[in-house]
């Protein structure tokens, strides 16, 4: 192979943004590289400058605070599993991490890399969106915050400008009586999701659903929230959630999807599957809330 690229290694996040600003569209941030290496070898991305983020230790941390947990963009998937309190505060993230690719990939792949790759099947996206996660974005001039839901713009497209970097993902502590679940279907352990679904339900003191989030992966150009399906659940007492209502919620969510056919499966199957996974995710959340 004769192609290669220039290598840059910033010591600080701001320096990384400045390098990106200087070199433009053919410079990439390289985190774990588990997606990027394959894309580059296939010729799917042009890279003149590789900005290796390995030196930015501060973005590798996971900090649990009183009100929120902040996950550095460079935290590996394995570090989610290893963290002392993340799994008890947000069990769904542990659940997701355990089903993310392989142990070797989880040791290297980062949460930020999974999100910035911008693919609709990214496993980190549905659970984090259902938790109302926000992202902190740095640029040479400053920073901004936006919801993770609005971070995704199209297939492999995010809200990041050329000189911007995803620094952190923050998740507020959930209200009491909340449960979040994640369902994922793939051909094998290693394969990316054919479809996935996350559900977060919060109930009030009378055990009525006060908040619902339903987010699907791999069934639209971006990870997709179904507010229509959420509305079917809000205000309903837990005891009144019937098999019929679950089916209706699944069908409503599936009707919002705009899947594609590709090498892995057909659009029709993805649409069907999204309904099944949403139904399962909601049923599991209801079951746990009832415990």
């Amino acid at each position: 192979m004769t192609r290669s690229f220039q290598y840059l290694r910033p010591d600080f996040p701001r320096e990384a943004c400045e390098m990106k600003a200087k070199h433009g569209g053919k410079a990439v941030f390289w985190a774990g590289g588990t997606d990027l290496m394959l894309q580059w070898r296939r010729g799917a991305v042009d890279i003149d400058y590789c900005i290796d983020l390995s030196g930015l230790d501060e973005l590798r941390q996971i900090r649990s605070g009183e009100d929120a947990t902040v996950i550095g963009a460079l935290a590996t998937i394995a570090s989610l599993q290893a963290h002392e309190s993340l799994g008890s505060d947000f069990p769904v993230l542990l659940d997701m991490a355990e089903r993310f690719a392989t142990p070797q990939i989880r040791n290297v792949a980062t949460v930020g890399g999974n999100l910035c790759h911008g693919v609709p099947s990214a496993d980190c996206a549905p659970p984090l969106i259902s938790l109302d996660a926000e992202v902190r974005i740095l640029s040479p001039e400053g920073e901004r915050t936006l919801s993770l839901e609005s971070f995704f713009v199209g297939p492999k497209q995010t809200a990041l400008a050329d000189d911007e970097m995803l620094a952190e993902i923050s998740v507020r502590r959930l209200p009491p009586r909340s449960v979040c679940t994640f369902e994922r279907m793939a051909r094998s352990y290693v394969d990316i999701a054919l479809a996935s679904a996350a559900c977060r339900l919060t109930i009030d003191e009378e055990s009525r659903i006060s908040e619902a989030r339903i987010v699907m992966g791999a069934v639209a150009p971006v990870p997709l929230r179904s507010t229509g399906a959420e509305e079917l659940l809000v205000g309903i007492p837990l005891v009144d959630i019937t098999e019929g209502l679950l089916a209706e919620v699944g069908a409503r969510a599936a009707s919002d999807t705009r899947p594609i056919s590709d090498v892995r499966t057909t659009a029709a199957y993805r649409k069907h599957l999204s309904g099944v996974l949403v139904k399962r995710a909601v049923a599991e959340a209801v079951r746990r809330l009832g415990e």
């Binding site: 590289g33 588990t34 290496m37 390995s54 142990p103 290297v108």
Partner: peptide
């Protein structure tokens, strides 16, 4: 930690 060395940059 186990890693797949075929897709990790040597420099890392």
């Amino acid at each position: 930690e186990a890693v797949t060395s075929c897709i990790m940059l040597a420099v890392q």
